[in-house]
């Protein structure tokens, strides 16, 4: 018996010259919630479809519960997918939808009825048995999709961007619900999304994908705080980018202005891209409050609901700074932006 419920070993999917999945190797432990995160075209959905049996790899091995499944069609794999659209059967009622997988597994009718009722309780939709999908809201439909997949007790649940079609409030609510269900039921899951918030909040581990490859796979906090590459850093959240050149012990911007920056580790000579999250900047009017500081002018203030975003101009540089409280600053005000050297990341 293997400890991993899912193993991908150098899995490859190629359509002619197009490589959708490029030698992906990853293992998902029993009860683990792993997210594949990436922009569209990064190969995350293709990878999920390979696991589900909707596509077949052109190279490598996929094992579910230790057994190779290459070439097995979807109906002969012990996985269940929650699709982006929900993909409920439109002419079947909620109860018939949920019962479908059990019927295919020839579960006795009495047990089907019991398990369907139990599932409706779990996804908080009791009394919806006889509704048709067209009579329900998007969020309710997605709960039914979840119930329909959970009820067959698969070895592995596969989520194909199940929240991306929902509006924000519903998205957050259902996200919390999936997290609760995972904690209660302990299923193993692979979750595909392009939303880093979803990935960070739900997952035990997140694999960031780009161009068919896994760039980094780590726990969410590690991924956020110690990104392995520039791509991972920029994909995990918004950032300020400073293009600089290092030479003769000084750091200058591209116009040649001297920047009084100190990084934790010294930088080798040459061109660098420095990154800084908007939330790590501090604004003050007279004295800098952190070790790195730039004198700036406020060019625009944006109100974003739970915080304010200040757009700053510093010589030729542009910075964004997020603060939770409105400062007494308006457009044109002079201000000092400062931050810790450790909050900066350098890539070349």
């Amino acid at each position: 018996m293997s400890e991993s419920i899912l193993e991908l070993e150098r899995v490859r999917l190629q359509y002619g010259p197009v490589v959708a999945v490029d030698d992906v190797t990853v293992a998902v432990g029993r009860g683990e919630f792993v997210t594949l995160l990436g922009p569209s075209g990064s190969g995350k959905t293709s990878t999920l479809r390979l696991v589900g049996g909707f596509e077949h790899p052109t190279g490598g091995v996929i094992r579910i519960a230790g057994r190779p499944v290459n070439g097995l069609p979807a109906n002969r794999r012990d996985t269940a997918t929650i699709f982006q659209s929900g993909a409920l059967f439109p002419h079947k009622t909620v109860a018939e939808n949920i019962a479908y997988g059990l019927r295919m597994r020839r579960v006795p009718a009495a047990e089907i009825a019991r398990r369907v009722a139990e599932m409706l309780e779990i996804v908080a939709l009791p009394g919806f048995e006889h509704r048709y999908p067209a009579e329900m809201s998007g969020g309710q439909r997605q709960r039914v999709a979840l119930a329909r997949s959970l009820v067959v007790r698969p070895s592995l649940l596969l989520f194909d961007e199940p929240l991306s079609a929902l509006d924000l409030a519903l998205k957050l609510q259902l996200r919390a619900e999936i997290k609760r269900l995972h904690a209660e039921l302990g299923f193993s899951a692979v979750f595909v999304t392009h939303d880093q918030g979803e990935a960070l909040s739900l997952s035990d581990r997140v694999a960031v994908m780009q161009k068919g490859r896994i760039e980094q796979i780590d726990r969410p906090d590690t991924l956020y705080n110690r990104p392995a590459s520039e791509f991972v850093y920029t994909f995990m959240g918004e950032s300020n980018r400073l293009d600089v050149t290092v030479g003769g012990g000084a750091i200058r911007d591209l116009q040649g202005h001297l920047l009084p920056l100190t990084l934790e580790d010294g930088l080798a000579e040459g061109a660098w891209r420095l990154y800084l999250r908007p939330s790590r900047l501090h604004l003050s009017e007279h004295e800098p409050v952190r070790s790195n500081a730039l004198r700036c002018t406020v060019s625009m203030v944006e109100f974003l609901g739970d915080h304010f975003r200040y757009h700053l101009a510093c010589h030729g540089l542009r910075l964004m700074c997020d603060v939770s409280a409105k400062l007494g600053l308006s457009e044109g005000s002079d201000v000092i932006a400062s931050w810790d050297g450790a909050d900066m990341r350098a890539y070349r």
Binding site: T81, F83, M104, V152
Partner: peptide
Amino acid sequence: LDRQVLEASRDLGAGPFT
């Protein structure tokens, strides 16, 4: 027909004829 709906059926254990 929604391709995902057909895939969902396969996914839940139904063969092509079913």
